[in-house]
Amino acid sequence: MRTVDERALDAAAGWHARLGSGRASDSERREFDAWIDAAPEHQDAWARTQNAWALVGELADHPALAQARRSARRPPASRLWAPVAIAASLAAAVALGLTWKTMAPPISPPAGEVQLAAISYMTPVGKVSRIALSDGTIVMLDADSAMSAVFDGKVRRVTLSRGRAQFQVAHDAAHPFVVTAQGRSVTALGTVFDVDLEPAAVTVTLLQGKVAVRDLTARQDARQAILTPGERLVASGDGGWSRRAIDTTQAARWLNGDLVFDESELGLVAAELNRYSNRKLVLADARLIHTPISGVFRAGDPEALAEGLEASGVARVTRRASDQIVLSKP
């Protein structure tokens, strides 16, 4: 008979394959959140699975892993997608001489050694993760966020594909640290900064040091901005850039679960709160999207915002389902 721990590891492998395929639906993400919160062994199994895939990152082009990825990305014919993904993932691991039961913590390449393949990291809704990269950089990856990292011996490259992250960059003048998000790059040497990938913009907030923000879609001589501590740059999808001074203490409060908004559009506020809760704020009226919102809200508590909007007459609150808070014009 298989142990509970083994079953948790198998389930974690299946979730990793499904979430990493990019085809997971909102309902499946909610199922994953419920699964990981159900038991401590589920959280441990998820961490060990993430570590396992980090260990085989340099073998990403191995035929066995390539076949596992192809299997995981096939659209599921039924709710039985998990066993298929699990079998593909485990078969690839066994083919490479690995076992889930004896998997050790991730081993980072020694300083100066080349990392040949990108390592991916993901966080579920409501969970902020602390990640130590091989160069000593510490990343705080926000809830419902995803990124990948690869160090090619010349440049330390990170790609933020979803959500937000704070980077506490280890100083290494010989190897620039570059974060790419939605066609913009942020280059730093020994600094602390946030990158927030929003639906229609990329926001860079500098807390310490100095960073250069550049538009990768433009010519070599096109726009570039050098930020100093306490500055925030918003690069919108329509090409507009804006800079302003911010309070760095307030800007870092999301790490402690406080979400601070200063004249932010309601559409962006709702999207950020939705990172932390399975109860989603839904704007049923497009006229609400650009409504300016200021205040401090606790992560995971969308009800507080909804109640405040209703009490102030800004929006009417209805509930179509237990997992939705619908806002409309009064």
Results as ranks from 00 to 15, higher is better:
Ser242Trp: 08
Pro124Met: 07
Gln166Val: 06
Ile36Ala: 02
Ala54Asp: 04
Met147Leu: 15
Ile289Cys: 03
Ala39Trp: 09
Thr249Phe: 02
Asp26Pro: 03
Arg69His: 04
Asp221Trp: 15
Gly230Leu: 01
Arg223Cys: 10
Ala188Ile: 01
Ile119Phe: 01
Asp5Pro: 03
Arg253Cys: 05
Val169Lys: 02
Arg70Asn: 12
Ser161Glu: 08
Pro199Asp: 05
Pro75Tyr: 04
Ser185Gly: 11
Gly209Val: 12
Arg214Leu: 12
Ala85Lys: 08
Leu90Asp: 03
Ala8Ser: 07
Glu6Trp: 10
Thr248Leu: 01
Lys127Pro: 00
Ser78Val: 09
Arg70Cys: 08
Glu263Ala: 08
Ala271Val: 05
Leu116His: 12
Thr102Asp: 13
Gly22Lys: 10
Gly300Lys: 03
Met147Thr: 06
Arg164Thr: 02
Val213Phe: 06
Arg7Asp: 11
Ala235Ile: 04
Gly237Ile: 14
Ala39Asn: 14
Pro199Gln: 09
Gln50Phe: 09
Asn278Met: 13
Glu263Tyr: 02
Ala85Gly: 11
Gln166Met: 10
Asp135Met: 03
Ala252Cys: 05
Glu231Ser: 05
Val4His: 06
Arg279Asp: 06
Trp81Pro: 04
Ile138Lys: 05
Ala311Ile: 11
His16Leu: 14
Asp26Gln: 09
Leu9Thr: 01
Ala117Val: 05
Leu268Asp: 09
Arg319Asn: 07
Ala47Tyr: 09
Thr291Asn: 08
Ser27Trp: 12
Ala72Arg: 07
Thr137His: 05
Ala87Val: 06
Ser322Val: 13
Gly22Arg: 09
Val158His: 05
Gly153Val: 06
Val4Pro: 00
Gln166Pro: 02
Ile119His: 00
His290Ser: 14
Ser322Asp: 15
Thr248Ala: 10
Val296Cys: 13
Arg74Lys: 01
Ala304Val: 15
Leu268His: 04
Val94Lys: 14
Leu227Gly: 06
Asp37Cys: 10
Ala12Ser: 07
Ala311Met: 11
Thr291Cys: 08
Asp5Arg: 12
Arg232Gly: 11
Leu59Phe: 04
Ser148Tyr: 02
Ile289Asp: 11
Leu259His: 05
Ile119Thr: 09
Gln50Asn: 15
Gly153Ala: 13
Val155Leu: 00
Gln220Glu: 11
Pro106Asn: 14
Gly239His: 12
Ala85Glu: 09
Val260Gln: 13
Arg29Lys: 11
